[in-house]
């Protein structure tokens, strides 16, 4: 087991390195000059040349790459050309907001999807099952942008129940913090619950017809035990996979939802950096997001071993 984890960690480091190289190269191949993005329309050619020189962009790409590798090996993941703040400090400032949003969206997503998924898997012909199918279809089809805007217009503009945007940590001010969290996390939570409901439902449907469930029932086990101990756990394997992917993408920042609610998370940080061609920040944030994804992937794989004891890592 330790060996497996160690091997995975080494793999992660290697993938991270490869990935960083790709990000570095692709950023420089993408059209759109960071100098132009900074100076805008009305600066002269001389100003462009000078700024390009200051940013080190007049050097060949491989030289820029070596310089960047050197910086990374010293723990410097890049600095903003705009604000002169480091990528790490910006991520540190933004990540808590993203974690809060992820946690609350996950909570909402699970509270909705687990009961709906189980019921519609166990009793596929019930009214609730039909509702669950309808809900997950609508939830998947609804663009989060639209849902977010509708919530914004009704709950904060018309009814004035909630502030339209902003963020404060619920640990600093629980009431305001939760008010700020409410709309973005419902928006994300519904988007999350929809696919999860479908996965849980189909997982349960598969399992409910399996022999061991019939056996469990034949042994005279009560329904609750059959469903929760025998069926749900086995149905969860595919759900955990999709859950891991969704969790990773949430922690990597939800660009659209964060934009609508002006949520100061990782997503808007990345979006702004891309628009401004702030290479240092884009590289830092992308590396950070990929690190999160890989870590969650590893955790998901380890969770398999818990859910399905037949899976072994040697």
């Amino acid at each position: 087991m330790q060996q497996y984890i160690l091997r995975r960690l080494i793999q992660m480091a290697f993938v991270l390195f490869l990935f960083s190289t790709v990000v570095f190269t692709v950023l420089r191949l993408v059209p759109g000059d960071p100098v132009a993005a900074q100076l805008g329309l009305e600066a002269g050619q001389e100003a462009y040349d000078q700024l390009r020189h200051e940013m080190g962009l007049d050097k060949p790409i491989y030289v820029q790459y070596m310089i960047w590798l050197g910086e990374i090996s010293r723990g410097d993941f890049g600095t903003s050309w705009r604000s002169h703040q480091t990528a790490i400090s910006l991520i540190q400032k933004r990540f808590p907001a993203t974690i809060w949003l992820t946690l609350s969206a996950m909570t909402i997503g699970l509270l909705l999807s687990v009961p709906l998924g189980i019921v519609s898997g166990v009793r596929p012909r019930s009214a609730l099952a039909h509702f669950a199918t309808f809900f997950s279809l609508v939830g998947i089809a609804l663009p989060s942008f639209w849902l977010g805007l509708m919530l914004l217009l009704t709950l904060s503009v018309s009814l004035r129940w909630l502030p339209p945007s902003g963020y404060i940590s619920p640990l600093v001010d629980p009431v305001m913090g939760l008010k700020f969290l409410a709309m973005p996390s419902v928006t994300l939570g519904i988007g999350l619950a929809a696919p999860l409901t479908r996965f849980i439902r189909s997982g349960m449907l598969d399992v409910m017809n399996a022999d061991y469930i019939r056996t469990a029932r034949a042994k005279g086990l009560i329904d609750r035990l059959v469903i929760f101990r025998h069926a749900l756990k086995n149905a969860m394997l595919s759900v955990v996979t999709i859950f891991g992917v969704l969790l990773g993408s949430l922690l990597g920042g939800s660009i659209i939802t964060e934009s609508v609610f002006n949520w100061p998370g990782i997503g808007t940080l990345l979006l702004q950096a891309i628009q401004q061609r702030d290479y240092g920040i884009v590289q830092g944030v992308v590396l950070f997001i990929s690190l999160i994804f890989m870590t969650i992937n590893l955790l998901v794989d380890l969770t398999y071993a818990y859910i399905d004891p037949r899976i072994r890592y040697q």
Binding site: Q92, P96, L103, Y167, I168, S169, V172, M176
Partner: peptide
């Protein structure tokens, strides 16, 4: 870990920081 990093947050509420 989550709690640790959450505790480090600063409020950025527009004009409504109590």
């Amino acid at each position: 870990l989550t709690l640790l990093s959450l505790a480090g947050c600063q409020p950025v509420a527009p004009s409504s920081a109590p």
